[in-house]
Amino acid sequence: MQLQFLGTGAGMPSKQRNTSSLALKLLEERRKIWLFDCGEATQHQILHTTLKPRKIEKIFITHLHGDHIFGLPGLLGSRSFLGGDEKLTIYGPKGLKEWIQLTLKISQTHLNYVMEIIEIEEGIIFEDDSFIVTAKELEHVIPCYGYRVEQKPLPGKLLVEKTSEIGVPKGPLLKRLKDGQDVTLEDGRLIRSADVTTPPISGFTVSILGDTRYCHKSIELSRDAHIVVHEATFDAGTEELAKPYGHSTILEAATVAKEAGAKALIANHISARFLPEAAKALETQGKSIFPDIWIASDFAEFEIKNGTVLERTS
């Protein structure tokens, strides 16, 4: 799993930061990409990466402010032109479906794939054999959601030496044992998967929060997460300025990560008032509360390896 930031600014684009968008790259897990928010020019940002729009399987919209959705119609159309023919599911607040359908209708944009739009409420909004996605409404000036993506535990590793010792033949029986299924050999012996595999391997948890004031639902979504992506539109000392706009300071983002027991925090949605050289000062402020923090920048990429969060040079 990798996270790649396509836009890390707040409100409107600047020379340093585009508007909000983040790609969760699940290429190893399901050969797909999940996109979170789609601000203006997101597809332009994608051109500077290895991301393929046809690989985007799901799009999660936090809220309907323009800096989080104005890139969506163009990306939906381009996905058709670029050979995307598999189903695309879009999740977001009430009103998203009407806005997308009306925009595509008026612009006469034809899609060559099935598009499903799910207007969400709090709770589990997606679950399959591998993942659970939970949404909770945060505290912004319009309805806005945060998302918790949890990978379910992975099967343990097969102890090949042990299976060889007890005479399990090579072939499909080994795969069944690795997948957690007990098997019966030709001689009638029952071989239990738990006896020839290591314990299940814990999956990752990522919390991707929309625009929000400091709130307890952010903490709930971020509980014990490997990575928390939290907005930090303002710096220390500007709490009273942040609150009326439904935003957080870097100190509040750090407090959420600390109180949630998260492993790492990536601060996002940075105001254009903070030039690149100011990012270090924001990071220093955040570290005073939560040490494992990064300030996101456009195209920055992060991954989890052996439970540790690493930044990859993009």
Rank of each mutant, 00 (worst) to 15 (best):
T89A: 09
A236G: 11
T50W: 08
E186M: 11
G95N: 02
E165D: 10
L51C: 06
H226R: 07
G146H: 09
A236Y: 11
R189F: 08
V196S: 05
A264F: 14
V228D: 05
E283P: 07
V160I: 13
E283T: 14
P172Y: 12
H247L: 14
C144E: 08
G92Y: 00
T103V: 15
Q285E: 14
P291K: 10
L111T: 02
E29M: 08
E150Y: 12
R312Y: 11
N18Y: 15
K175Q: 14
R79M: 08
S20Q: 14
P200Y: 02
H216N: 14
E139H: 08
I100M: 01
V133Q: 06
S20C: 15
Y214D: 05
S207T: 02
L35Y: 02
F131Y: 12
L221D: 03
A236E: 10
F70R: 06
V160H: 15
F5E: 00
S14I: 01
H226Q: 11
L51W: 07
L154D: 06
R30G: 12
I250P: 02
H269Q: 10
K280I: 15
K305E: 13
L64C: 06
D37F: 06
L221Y: 04
K280P: 04
E137N: 05
I191E: 06
T19N: 03
I208H: 02
I61S: 01
L282K: 07
E220T: 12
I219C: 04
D211V: 15
E119L: 03
P169D: 10
R30H: 10
E57W: 13
P73S: 05
Q101V: 11
K32R: 12
R79D: 04
L177G: 00
E137C: 07
S288G: 12
R223P: 00
I117Y: 06
T233V: 14
G9Q: 05
S78G: 14
Q16Y: 15
P143Q: 00
L27H: 11
G203W: 08
L190C: 09
I304Y: 00
G210H: 00
D298M: 05
E86R: 13
T42R: 02
L35K: 00
L310Y: 11
R30Q: 12
H230D: 11
E165P: 07
Q285L: 12
G9P: 09
F60C: 07
K25F: 01
K170I: 09
Y145K: 01
L6K: 00
G156K: 04
K217G: 04
E122F: 11
G146N: 06
A23Y: 03
L88R: 04
H110M: 13
G180Y: 06
I293K: 03
R223G: 04
G77M: 09
A296F: 06
Y91A: 03
K136N: 07
G156I: 04
G39S: 00
I100S: 09
G180L: 08
R54C: 14
K263P: 05
E186L: 15
R17L: 04
D292M: 12
E311N: 07
I201R: 12
G66S: 10
S271D: 06
Q181R: 13
K55M: 15
R31I: 02
L104E: 01
L209A: 02
E220F: 13
I69E: 00
G74S: 05
V229H: 04
L26W: 01
V309P: 04
